[in-house]
Write a protein that binds this DNA or RNA. Structure first.
Lengths: 122, 122
DNA sequence: TCTTGACCTGGAGTGAACTCCAGATTGTAG
DNA sequence: CTACAATCTGGAGTTCACTCCAGGTCAAGA
């Protein structure tokens, strides 16, 4: 699969894919004779996982750390596990924070519902 | 209250407070004779609310929209309410997304737990 | 009064994560 | 073979949300 198709199928722009490769998030890709990058479908698993990390707010720098550990081999598994566990705690905390904010939003909106036409709340 | 104290009590840096004023998130502040900004404690409510919006991922540009509507008077209440309702939906969606990712993380971590020492998972 | 710390402004600089560009190849449909 | 679409590289540019700086004014304690 060429980069254009990978882009279409992952939603990442072509530039982003090349950028991720440059910074070490994606492996230095094997090239076709033409010099064009040639991907096989294994890449979807990895890109999908990176997407999860990204969605949950992990900075690229930390994903790169993870990618490097992964590339370094099986003996880094404990470190990777620890990294994910730390991240999981952050995500949990973030969800809790968002949930609390949601309540505040609800209250605020409820306040507007009651006061439209003559309100004065912040 | 002067800007230094406000900074200490809100956790926003002095520069950030001035920046927020410049971009219209905080009102053009009344000054003491010295020219120094002079805040009263009403500001905490507003800054606190902005903090909620920020935590939930609202971009500054949209907070500015909200701030402008608020400053324009009570007749903008319906618009503000609609803005918050739209935002609330985004937050809900985001929480759902994070929760789903959390499950993936859990699985991944569980996978590591079972395979440390001889694994080969992504 | 002197000094030190807080505050002022306008503007430049920063880091994160892309995004775009020029100029050169390569691949492919007609 | 021609034209045009896709890809390549290295590097510059963009957006967001701050953060820092220079050069100056103001204030409060010894």
């Amino acid at each position: 699969m060429k980069i254009g198709e990978l882009s279409r199928r992952t939603g990442l722009s072509i530039d982003t894919i090349r950028y991720y490769e440059r910074i070490g998030l994606l492996p230095k890709q094997r090239r076709a004779a033409s010099g064009h990058r040639d991907y096989d479908s294994d890449i979807f698993t990895w890109i999908g996982f990176l997407g999860r990390l990204k969605t949950t707010g992990m900075p690229l720098s930390e994903m790169i750390t993870y990618a490097r550990l992964r590339a370094a081999g099986a003996h880094t598994a404990p470190e990777r596990k620890a990294l994910l566990e730390r991240h999981r705690e952050l995500v949990r905390a973030h969800i809790a924070e968002l949930t609390a904010c949601l309540t505040v939003l609800d209250d605020k909106i409820a306040g507007y519902a009651g006061s439209i036409g003559q309100e004065k709340t912040p």
